[in-house]
Amino acid sequence: MEKTLDLKFTYTEKKDTRSGFGDGLLEAGRQNPNVVGLCADLIGSLKMGAFQKEFPERFFQVGIAEANMIGLAAGMTIGGKIPFTGTFANFSTGRVYDQIRQSVAYSGKNVKICASHAGLTLGEDGATHQILEDVGMMKMLPHMTVINPCDYNQTKAATLALVNHEGPAYLRFGRPSWPIFTPKDQEFVIGKAWKMIEGTDVTIFATGHLVWEAVVAEAMLREEGISAEVINIHTIKPLDEEAILASVAKTGCAVSAEEHQINGGLGDSIAQTLIRNNPAPLEYVGVMDSFGESGTPTQLLEKYGLNAENIVKAAKKAIARKMSY
């Protein structure tokens, strides 16, 4: 269906965002001798194999022991290393929340927590592994930067940007093959939202895989004569409040779209920004306080209301609420 639409961004290739991380890490290792990698028995899944092969002395297989991995990474910053830890998002956050809180965030350590297989699009493995709360946990931690890029190219650029970013950071990406629709070798500025499509009736703030769904939704809305602005919020914390407020000042209403619980995710951060500065209707596209389940990524995004059609519905609802103000 999306092929018949007049999309403002298109793709010729699909790839998983985790490969963007793996390729970014390899390049980061070549650029900076202080970059080290740690992985908890998921080297293949995290695409860290190329880094391991080229820099064996700077790579640490830690086994299935995520708590230890976080502590090790914190220790490795003492002496000047820049550790990138890799495991699934579930084991990168909930399993090790206290370790991240005390040894990384509170201690202000320059650790990059890199988390794959986030969200529903993990697919068939089901709810045990489909974490939908990780952004909330990470953004609550003082000092923590939270980044959720949208495709292979942006994930690679984000990985490289983190090398030169001093401080704790959480980098969230995923498993499925996904359209590559942002430029190769793009500049990635942490904390700076990217206005991808200009519009006037409603703003769609999307993050991660759902940025693509937002791009598709914009074309669908345009066919119905609705002008949507699409803003790529790759950095959830620190949030680019200036960009959010400027856009909503123009459009008057907004939709947030994320592969995460609506409680504690990007939508809540935007709501907080709006309510403190310029209250405006905001509709959430996200998981409504439930766990996921097994299925294909496409099936799951549809069933849990996270695809382009749902963004379209939310946009219309936001516009209707604006009209009734």
Binding site: F60, A67, N68, M69, I70, G71, L72, A73, A74, G75, M76, T77, I78, G79, G80, K81, P83, Q99, S103
Partner: peptide, 9 residues
Amino acid sequence: SVALGAAQV
């Protein structure tokens, strides 16, 4: 864990 990371570095 932290001490071991520092020791490896």
